[in-house]
Design a protein around this nucleic acid. Structure first.
Lengths: 199, 199
DNA sequence: CGAACAATGTTGACACCGTCAAGATAAGCA
DNA sequence: TGCTTATCTTGACGGTGTCAACATTGTTCG
């Protein structure tokens, strides 16, 4: 019943849709992701997906949500293996940017206008985002305590600004504004030097 | 011949299209800007705009280009009236962010994926962007000389990172990821503190 | 002046898109 | 068994960008 192709019911359409959508996203970007093509890819009629996702926006939110969870797990693993040292922060930054580059389309969904401005973020998505940010602020606090980051403001504020800086870097690389890879790691190094406290 | 409505030829369609597009952009965002609606608004047939812009992408590039020029003039005026002081830098940052907020849709066109990744930036647009960035780097150099910004790297590198930070802040505000205005100016203040050299 | 030509406008058509409404099919349960 | 509900289907509507073919106008030159 699961792998059969002649069944009227698909079996696990919800997940299949997410998988196929992920693939299209990676290969063709959001612009190449349409509900019709998606349905076709999965081998189902145009409107079948609407029984699993309210609309396209809901599908995208689901993808972004998965992105948040993966990113959070990704980074959590790193933090567990090291203290609040400057080296850990550096690695954190590199991981963050690597994630943004390796999953640029999902990253765009997570933080871009498609969902947050043009569309409407699902409640679940908002929760995921908020949770991720809280974890981030928590670690910022630790880095402040250990003197890696400046203590001239609350961890919330420092969390906001450092994240904004990281995000800006990620966006410029992702959106094709900095097309050349040249000097990219130098930029990151300089950015880290800027973010860390100068004693 | 100019203001008449019964003429077969419009008279100044090119500019009229840009004006109308600007208006739609401001009121409804890029999502609400379609070539057909645009043509309708100007009172011309669907495909008339294609005699003035190769395609929608070209139109958007033109809008973004105008944005660059306006921004550059905007900021140039500021710089002319003040030296390379920290106060000038602060004002610069505020102006930059204000521009991003007050012209969020154009800002998005100038630096967003719509043109730079999904579409193809016109040669003219690329020139405008490059020119603006060069001016930016030039001023960064002056601020470095006067000790406002750090001298631990080239003006190009510092220009890239400070701009990335600013850009990140702008994006988060624009894209609706930071919906509340609360503490926004505090964020900016902290960001400036971070960017300026700590003597 | 008039004819040729280029610029600018028009309608028609095509292939997409998101999504709603109504009906078909299957699964779960009484 | 039959009823309900979840799932999937086809059909349809209004929207999109843009190409091809044709109409009109302004320009230029013999």
């Amino acid at each position: 019943m699961k792998t059969s192709k002649k069944h009227y019911h698909h079996g696990d359409l919800n997940q299949s849709l997410l998988n196929a959508a992920s693939l299209i996203l990676r290969n063709e970007g959001v612009e190449g992701l349409s509900m019709r093509k998606l349905a076709d890819q999965v081998g189902v009629s145009r409107t079948a997906p609407y029984h699993h996702f309210k609309d396209k926006n809901a599908l995208l939110c689901s993808l972004a949500e998965a992105g948040f969870k993966q990113q959070q797990a990704d980074l959590q693993a790193l933090a567990d293996n090291s203290g609040a040292t400057r080296e850990a922060f550096t690695q954190y930054v590199y991981r963050y940017l690597a994630y943004a580059q390796n999953h640029s389309e999902i990253y765009d969904l997570m933080f871009g206008r498609t969902i947050w401005k043009a569309g409407e973020p699902t409640a679940e998505l908002q929760n995921s985002a908020k949770s991720t940010f809280k974890t981030w602020v928590y670690w910022i606090g630790l880095w402040q305590e250990s003197g890696v980051l400046t203590q001239n403001n609350t961890s919330l504020r420092i969390g906001q600004t450092t994240w904004a800086s990281l995000h800006g870097l990620a966006r410029l690389m992702i959106d094709g504004v900095y097309p050349d890879q040249t000097g990219q790691s130098e930029m990151v190094e300089q950015m880290i030097r800027n973010l860390c406290s100068h004693q």
